[in-house]
Amino acid sequence: MNKVITVLLCCLCTTVSAKDFAKEKQERLVSSLIKQQVNQQVSIENSVKSLLIRYPEKVDLIVPAAVKLYPADYISIMNGAMKAEPVLACSVLEAMLTSNVAPAASLLEHAISLEPAYSSELINVVINARPDDLENLLRVAITNEPLFSNAVVDKTMNSFPDRLVSILVSAINIMPDNVANFIKSALALKPENNQQVLTKTFSGLNDRYTQEIVDSALAAGMSEQAIVDAIQKSDMDKNIRDNLKIAKNEQ
């Protein structure tokens, strides 16, 4: 049996450099190798890990093949893939999402637990794949690695500028204690749109954290008049509006 595995490994090495080799044949080869290893009592985690250590460039072939063979073991497959090459974290997550083996939020949560340093990159991968679930995915990323919350939100806003307000509102809802950092980052992206961003943020938060947002906007360098204009154009309740402290010397 060991001789068979050795031969298969040699064949796989050849296919890596053979550009004209059909992908379907490569998939069959990888699947055959994984099954051989598992039949020899090699865990699926170690099988995937060993393959990706040898052929990291084949992550989009190896991970889907393993998931197709052993879908119930997708956690072990992720473990093996990310332990083989941490730098492949995003590619592994992409492959898992394409396989649709588990909810995106669950896959993201496990990926972050394995490679927290890649939190910002991982959340971007999942939002690209599941854009309609932005708030839930952002919640998973921030709550699982609160130390990276500012970096995650900053990178997400930079990566998806057309969804800036949605990301900002979601981030404040999830972690209101960080409102100052979130507002500062958002207003720094496109200063010419700050008034519009603030107006939509006030409306999106339904009169919550209004004073904190005002204080944060002032601290970020936004003028009092611009803030007043943003408030007037928002859906803010009149009683709340009348009680806000906007001048810097009133804080």
Score class of each variant (00 low, 15 high):
Gln211Cys: 13
Met82Tyr: 04
Asn136Met: 09
Val7Lys: 06
Ala105Glu: 15
Ile167Tyr: 01
Glu27Met: 06
Thr210Met: 13
Ser31Ala: 04
Ala217Cys: 08
Lys83Asn: 11
Gln40Ala: 02
His110Met: 09
Ile227Leu: 10
Gly80Arg: 00
Asp132Ala: 11
Phe160Leu: 02
Thr201Tyr: 08
Glu135Asp: 13
Tyr118Asn: 08
Ser43Tyr: 02
Leu137Phe: 04
Gln36Ala: 15
Ile53Asp: 06
Val67Pro: 01
Asp20Thr: 15
Glu121Lys: 08
Ser32Cys: 07
Val228Glu: 10
Ala247Arg: 03
Leu189Glu: 07
Arg241His: 03
Asn2Cys: 03
Thr15Val: 10
Lys23Thr: 09
Leu107Val: 01
Leu29Val: 07
Ile213Trp: 11
Thr98Lys: 14
Tyr209Arg: 10
Ile127Gly: 02
Ser106Glu: 15
Lys238Asp: 14
Phe182Met: 11
Gln195Ser: 10
Asn178Cys: 11
Pro116Leu: 13
Lys200Met: 10
Asp235Met: 05
Ala141His: 02
Ala65Leu: 02
Ala104Asn: 06
Leu198Tyr: 13
Ile227Gly: 01
Val59Ser: 12
Ile240Ser: 08
Ala117Asp: 15
Leu93Tyr: 05
Tyr70Asn: 02
Leu9Phe: 10
Pro56Glu: 10
Leu168Lys: 04
Ser91Gln: 12
Ile34Thr: 03
Glu45Arg: 11
Ser99Trp: 11
Ala22Phe: 08
Leu33Cys: 01
Ala95Ile: 14
Leu12Ile: 13
Leu93Ser: 09
Asp235Glu: 02
Lys35Arg: 15
Arg163Ala: 07
Ser170Asn: 12
Asp215Thr: 13
Gly221Met: 09
Met1Lys: 12
Pro131Met: 00
Ala18Ile: 07
Ala22Tyr: 13
Asn193Leu: 08
Glu27Ile: 15
Asn158Gln: 12
Leu29Glu: 06
Glu27Phe: 10
Cys11Ile: 08
Ala117Trp: 12
Ser91His: 13
